[in-house]
Design a protein around this nucleic acid. Structure first.
Lengths: 193, 193
DNA sequence: TAATATCGTACTGACGCAGTGCTGTATCGC
DNA sequence: GCGATACAGCACTGCGTCAGTACGATATTA
């Protein structure tokens, strides 16, 4: 578990489209919808949120659209996740709100959750949108350091999907035809695959 | 976000009760319910799951109950989370199931999610039930290493709760009276505080 | 045999997510 | 100014999962 929402997943994929294009280029919701095969209302909804949170700047009217507010190197996963699903908090009591919990100083588990929380935050904060546009290289910019990264156990076993499988945006239109009949035009997968 | 379920939260609190008692001691669902102020059906339900996953051993009949299957040092958070809410997977495609996603080798974001996933897993795997019973000391057993742990930003701001605030199990009955009227007898907070 | 306590499963209400639709408003080009 | 375009904001609808409850069956002890 600890699943992120599809909205966030989609949002990241959409943002990688921006990051892959020349800086400052304007994309309309419609264009992005066609490129990624995501439903237009959903794309529109997500872009609005990202605009409201300052990750995108919107341009209204004819020839309008959205463009990145910052360079892809300056946008991290925690910015995106924070915009689309709120602050990262594994438990209620790792949130920032001053507590109604009167037992704070005595609760033994709370400090541990905050630590776990911080690990997740740091991992997300150490991954930029620019890095997200290309597969993981041997060296990367992540600030979180693991003793050994055992990607093998996770990577070798592949993945799976709860809903309509579909191609990554890079090769969406061509590959779609090879997939089983889709009950909906939804195109992207959780994880962006 | 990335919130764990209340069931998991409760489960961890319940298990800390086991870990705080002498090894091998049998606890009934009823006793644990009274100690933690959690509703009995909920406690019972959670203990069943933990038993099914081999974290607890059950003893039926009169003088029955549950006891820890392993020493608290040998039970990690990932065992508990895995039992109560399935494998840790931020995105669908970081799951272990062989993929319906035909674009796996070409998807640029997938490897990054797997890395984040691994960070979370390692953080959870590095925290034992034994450690969970006492507040975070200066040094700990976590295998995940951060360059700097900035607990201050999270810890200094306290916490908050989405539902009925209640005391930690250690001082539950006495402190409960000082809290605002509760719409339900639910006692524990997300995060166990 | 009765009491106790777990086991398994089914059920219900509430809530959040996924996705859609509509009205309003700003901008551009004619 | 006017119409077309595209974003802004909001409300709404299924649907699935979570939180919590209930009950009959089974195993154990005295």
């Amino acid at each position: 578990m600890f699943r992120m929402t599809k909205q966030t997943d989609y949002g990241i994929v959409l943002l990688t489209r921006f990051a892959s294009a020349p800086m400052g280029q304007v994309h309309t919701a419609r264009d992005l919808s066609e490129e990624t095969l995501l439903p237009l209302p959903m794309v529109s909804k997500i872009l609005k949120v990202l605009g409201r949170y300052g990750l995108l700047v919107s341009h209204r009217g004819v020839k309008g659209g959205y463009s990145l507010a910052r360079r892809p190197e300056q946008i991290t996963m925690i910015d995106i996740v924070g915009a689309l699903e709120g602050p990262v908090a594994i438990t209620e009591c790792s949130l920032e709100r001053p507590g109604a919990c009167t037992q704070e100083p005595l609760c033994p588990v709370r400090t541990h959750w905050q630590r776990i929380n911080q690990v997740v935050r740091d991992a997300l904060a150490g991954l930029t949108l620019a890095e997200m546009t290309q597969p993981l290289p041997a060296s990367h910019g992540t600030r979180v350091m693991l003793e050994t990264v055992e990607l093998s156990s996770a990577a070798a076993r592949g993945n799976g999907h709860g809903h309509t499988p579909a191609p990554s945006s890079e090769l969406a239109p061509a590959a779609l035809a090879t997939l089983p009949a889709s009950p909906s035009p939804v195109a992207l997968l959780n994880g962006g695959c």
